[in-house]
Simulated scan of single mutants.
Amino acid sequence: MALSRVWWARATFWGSAVTPGPFVTRRLQLGCSGLVWGAPRSSKLHLIPKADVKSLVSYVVDKTKVIHEKYHRFLGRNFPRFYVMYTIFMKGFRMLWADAKKARRIKANMWKQNIKFHQLSYRDMEHLRQFSRDVTKCIFIGIISIPPFANYLVFLLMYFFPRQLLVRHFWTPKQQTEFLDIYHTLQRQSHPEILTCLEMTIPAISDAGLRWHLTEVCNKIHHGTQPAVNDILALRECFSNRPLDMNHLQTLQLKALSRAMLLTPHLPPFLLRSRLKNHTTVIHQLDKALAKLGIGELTAQEVKSACYLRGLNSTHIAEERCRTWLGEWLQISCSLKEAELSLLLHNVVLFSTNYLGTRR
């Protein structure tokens, strides 16, 4: 910079435009603009075309499918029993995951539309009810798998006790029929005790007509006769007051009814009563939604599942018979008020014990 000032001073003094030397010019360039390192870079980026990306993804997906099919053939050829278990497990996991996504979508719609459970459609209500039971069993499996290396023991237990530890998605078709029969047998074991409790409470009923009606219904069941819809509805007042209303049932009755509804009886009486109330209320809400939808809109599997939930072993009954029974059940359920739900709870025994010779 000092040399440049000297040069300008000399040029001004002598009045001539002296061309600066190369050294001075270089210093001036350094002082004014600095050095330029290399040629300017281009701002354009070299991107892979979208068509190439799609073809690459398609290629990877196709190769993955081929490898997956080869792996399945290898398992089926060399380990047939393990392959059956593996297939059932993967299929069950996909079904359970699909149920979880559907339940989440239903819950989100309930929150957005600000609606309650009983305002849902029948299929949405039934899906949430069944999924909550499945999740309860899955949570239990998750809890016992927490300790170190406990997951190996859990897999062994699931293999030997699939009915107790696995949800229905992981059962084979043969196991589904077998396990449903076992559950229904457990239900029926509580029926005599429930009928005995009803007969013991007959003298405590103040109305003579109600005592006669209840005695007739119990006698019909003991003699293998199916009570009619009108026979059951005649007992509405009997089950809405002491001693058979929901709030005055004895502990033995609560335990027996819990077994009939496939609920654990090993809880304090107030919890048993609360669970039975909630369970019966849900069935009543399902019945109202089903009556609104119409039984004719249900598939064969949905009809059988609905009958089984209400105490009828529908696995060995024809579809049309199941539809007839379900229609009669809805006539009873939709005629009941909230205070009469104890009759709906007992109807699991009263209306299913002798239907079409299902009593064994």
Rank of each mutant, 00 (worst) to 15 (best):
residue 226 Q to N: 06
residue 148 P to F: 07
residue 106 I to F: 06
residue 186 L to D: 04
residue 177 T to Q: 11
residue 193 E to N: 14
residue 306 A to N: 03
residue 272 L to P: 05
residue 282 V to Q: 08
residue 225 T to V: 14
residue 16 S to I: 15
residue 34 G to M: 03
residue 59 Y to D: 03
residue 103 A to T: 04
residue 1 M to G: 15
residue 72 H to T: 14
residue 55 S to L: 00
residue 327 G to N: 01
residue 112 K to I: 15
residue 85 M to K: 10
residue 356 L to K: 07
residue 135 V to Y: 07
residue 216 E to I: 04
residue 150 A to M: 02
residue 313 N to W: 08
residue 323 R to T: 09
residue 282 V to L: 08
residue 133 R to L: 13
residue 148 P to Q: 06
residue 84 V to C: 13
residue 340 E to P: 04
residue 323 R to G: 04
residue 315 T to W: 13
residue 347 N to F: 07
residue 341 L to K: 03
residue 306 A to M: 06
residue 309 L to W: 06
residue 77 R to I: 09
residue 349 V to W: 01
residue 254 L to T: 02
residue 43 S to V: 10
residue 195 L to V: 07
residue 243 P to F: 03
residue 44 K to L: 13
residue 53 V to A: 11
residue 172 T to S: 09
residue 262 L to T: 07
residue 289 A to Q: 00
residue 359 R to C: 13
residue 214 L to M: 06
residue 97 W to I: 08
residue 183 Y to S: 11
residue 209 G to V: 01
residue 36 V to E: 13
residue 307 C to Y: 08
residue 246 M to Y: 03
residue 143 I to M: 09
residue 277 K to S: 14
residue 150 A to T: 02
residue 187 Q to D: 08
residue 172 T to H: 07
residue 314 S to P: 03
residue 25 T to F: 10
residue 345 L to I: 05
residue 255 K to M: 08
residue 11 A to Y: 10
residue 81 R to P: 07
residue 332 I to M: 00
residue 276 L to S: 03
residue 234 A to L: 06
residue 328 E to T: 07
residue 297 E to A: 12
residue 349 V to H: 03
residue 311 G to M: 01
residue 92 G to A: 04
residue 120 L to P: 02
residue 17 A to S: 05
residue 214 L to G: 03
residue 242 R to M: 14
residue 241 N to P: 01
residue 295 I to F: 05
residue 288 K to I: 13
residue 120 L to V: 01
residue 91 K to Y: 11
residue 306 A to Y: 00
residue 293 L to R: 05
residue 191 H to M: 07
residue 50 K to I: 12
residue 350 L to H: 04
residue 57 V to M: 05
residue 355 Y to G: 03
residue 218 C to G: 00
residue 224 G to P: 01
residue 260 A to T: 02
residue 20 P to D: 05
residue 311 G to S: 01
residue 12 T to F: 12
residue 141 I to Y: 06
residue 89 F to C: 14
residue 55 S to C: 06
residue 152 Y to I: 11
residue 83 Y to D: 15
residue 148 P to H: 09
residue 37 W to M: 09
residue 343 L to C: 04
residue 4 S to V: 15
residue 178 E to H: 12
residue 185 T to C: 14
residue 310 R to N: 09
residue 297 E to L: 12
residue 281 T to L: 12
residue 216 E to F: 00
residue 233 L to E: 01
residue 164 Q to L: 11
residue 145 S to P: 02
residue 310 R to H: 09
residue 236 R to G: 13
residue 230 N to G: 04
residue 21 G to C: 10
